[in-house]
Amino acid sequence: MSDAAGDDRTGDETDVQASDGETDVQASDGETDVRSDVDANDVRARTDPRASAPEDAILRVRNLDAGYGDLQILTDVDLDVGDGEYVTIVGPNGAGKSTVMKSVFGLTTHLGGTITFRSEPIHELPPERIIHQGISYVPQSDNVFAGLSVRENLEMGAYILDEVPESRIETIYDRFPVLRDRQGQKAGTLSGGQRQMVAMGRALMLDPDLLLLDEPSAGLAPDLVQDMFDRIDRINDDGTAVLMVEQNAKQALRRCDRGYVLTQGRNAYTDAGDRLLADEEVRRKFLGG
């Protein structure tokens, strides 16, 4: 069992290095670009959240005001996720990153604005209805049923279906082979990385069009963080759009298609991930130089 997991990890490491090299090159390319021609258009693109939005966006958040009860956290937030796109939200602590995600999933108090998914308004729907629309959510912590077996966790992910989709469970096991070996084990006894796989596997059971990930790297050992990001890349490569909140901003921006920088519950910057990463101002303010 542990052997298989070990092999898997070694394979991933090679992947990481390969893709890292690639991104680095692109990133430095971007940097020179930005420095050479700073014009009004670029500034507008960076600060207008709608400018970079793909035209075929499946998720559209417009002028969203949201919070918890009377406490308003988000003001006038715009955000789009295209079909199959990989989008991250970064920003300082308390900027409202997770709140955006929870709002999309119907877990906050909606105070204004609209959220549409495939042109259907969803901002008034409870979570169990939103799941039916094709969105799944992986919370940051406590995201497995500790007393249930790995397999039962996955089965719960497909609760809204009449029958347990065996083929889907197999697909999840193929994606996370260590879960197949541990399928009878209680999820609470697994390591942090394996639990994160159970949580993602559960969210993938309905083959969602959009996967919401709240800080997937939180609490993972450093060597597992790369592994986790690789797995997310592969989920995205298979066509699932990903909206992710990450503390690990540099990593996340390097890997995503587009990024949103949020401050104090408002949009600050939006651009392709590597361009945000290369942006002097964004770097200085939010990425620690």
């Binding site: 039916h132 049923f145 007393g147």
Partner: peptide, 23 residues
């Protein structure tokens, strides 16, 4: 049973049960 598993899931973690789509 599925209902029983859902009951155990809810006893375990109510918030997660909600976001998992368990009624």
């Amino acid at each position: 049973t599925k209902l029983g598993t859902a009951m155990r899931a809810m006893a375990d973690n109510k918030d997660l049960a909600l976001v998992t789509g368990i009624p």
